[in-house]
């Protein structure tokens, strides 16, 4: 699975993107966030306020309850501040 990170999520994790092999138990966006937090303190630092993390699957916004089955690219980022 390709994961991409933006803004302070990218800075705290320390990389803009990575490919990961997800365990079969990771079925939803919320599962993915919880699993990532177990991968090291940089992930825990980036994702500790899990509820405010915004997620896009294949470049469309999704809620944390969304299933990740069939996703090609999942993006994690802070609330947006454009405009």
């Amino acid at each position: 699975m390709k994961l991409v990170y933006f803004a302070w999520v990218r800075e705290r994790i320390g990389k803009p993107q990575e490919d990961v092999d997800l365990p079969a138990s990771v079925k939803t966006v919320a599962d993915l966030l919880s699993w990532l937090r177990t991968r090291g303190e940089e992930y825990e630092h980036a994702l500790q306020h899990q509820k405010i993390i915004r997620v896009a699957i294949d470049q469309e916004h999704v809620e944390h309850g969304e299933t990740i089955a069939g996703a090609r690219e999942i993006a994690l980022f802070p609330p947006m501040t454009g405009g």
């Binding site: 980022f77 609330p79 947006m80 501040t81 454009g82």
Partner: peptide, 20 residues
Amino acid sequence: KSRAPFWKKEHGADGTAGDW
């Protein structure tokens, strides 16, 4: 403002890189 994926980082007048 709330849905387009853009993020702003501030740079201070004193030359310091500021916060998101």
